[in-house]
Design a protein around this nucleic acid. Sequence first.
DNA 1: GTCTATAGAATGATAGAC
DNA 2: GTCTATCATTCTATAGAC
Lengths: 220, 220
Amino acid sequence: MASDQTRSAILAAAERLYADRGFGDVTLRDIVAEADVNLAAVNYHFGSKDELIAELFVTRSIATNRERLRELKAAEEQGGGRAPIEVILRALVGPTLRGCLGPENQRSTAARFMIRASIESVPPIRRIKNREIDHLRKFANAMRRALPERSDEEIYWGLHFALAMAHHTIRESERLTKLSDGRCDLDDVDAIIERVVSVAATALTAGKATGKAPARVAVR
Amino acid sequence: MASDQTRSAILAAAERLYADRGFGDVTLRDIVAEADVNLAAVNYHFGSKDELIAELFVTRSIATNRERLRELKAAEEQGGGRAPIEVILRALVGPTLRGCLGPENQRSTAARFMIRASIESVPPIRRIKNREIDHLRKFANAMRRALPERSDEEIYWGLHFALAMAHHTIRESERLTKLSDGRCDLDDVDAIIERVVSVAATALTAGKATGKAPARVAVR
DNA sequence: GTCTATAGAATGATAGAC
DNA sequence: GTCTATCATTCTATAGAC
């Protein structure tokens, strides 16, 4: 059907333009010109500009989340229902970081689109991210099984900080390169993943397992 | 002068509306209606919608950065040109977190505006953040003085991760509250600051001071 | 210098013909 | 399923009043 062709052409053109120029600077007219379809076709196939953006984002998100859960499940099965905390954290941040950073990926349209989505965070994308909580809860549960002596509060802060480092590295990779004058290698994705995993794991396991916040430093 | 009155009314109305409803949903017409001024007054005083947003953001940013530097300078003077790493990190993330989180601050217009700016990151705000590098470099230098045995690469990653945890906590405070079912207390700002400082300091000081990345965990 | 009234260009959305 | 024509709304720009 010509329908599918038009639909796909719109999706491909939109992803490319959004990746290159961001959501704010790309109009529906830019997209239909790039895809060589009629203006009204966008609203016919997607309903609105926001729903087009949402469709692009969910497609990529689902792929990442599927890979995350695949790695988590494999690790827990191998460990008889309990995986080391580092492996769980690696399953959490690895797929996201591999999907956005790296010398080849950086140039792929999909990767640049996801970086853009991470930076600009327009309403349709925020709405989808807000539905991610159930997905994250599975990782919190796995982390609880890995560190049964840790309080829930500590588990959630560890999960939160792991995501913080991963997403902020994606969002601010350019700034970090500039700030460090190239000393921080943003192309070595595996090293970045291990760095994030290592810091998050240390935060979760260091100190006494009292379930309380880390002791405050006396200096002031 | 009536000038200042109009200008101030626009700024106040804009900050309030942006804080409440975000940048995407508030039009210049909404702002001038709220401020009870003419539409063209916005362009007269600020040039464009983007410059109005930029002015609101720089005002708040300058205040935060000034406080950051004040704390950093005080700490280094007290330590004879060298401050403990925890105090430097506290000067880096403390003012930002105190300005956005906390039970009273959360309801202040300025705080809600800065949270909004952190979440939505529209072009005029991104442009200003990109000029922050020189400011951050001062903290990198102080960190180098505190940890002379650490490589530059480690210093920059530590700085980067500290900012990651602080900003992500501001951006995703609502999600963390939901995810943790209220177990993570987002109102206790001091505890959050110490938590971020503690994790970042541990990441910077743990392990051998070889200047290399932390050893990779063997499990896979 | 400060502000008002108004026009212009561009955008997302839609109704209705084919 | 596709397209033309058109709508309402948006930001921006300017001419001229005070």
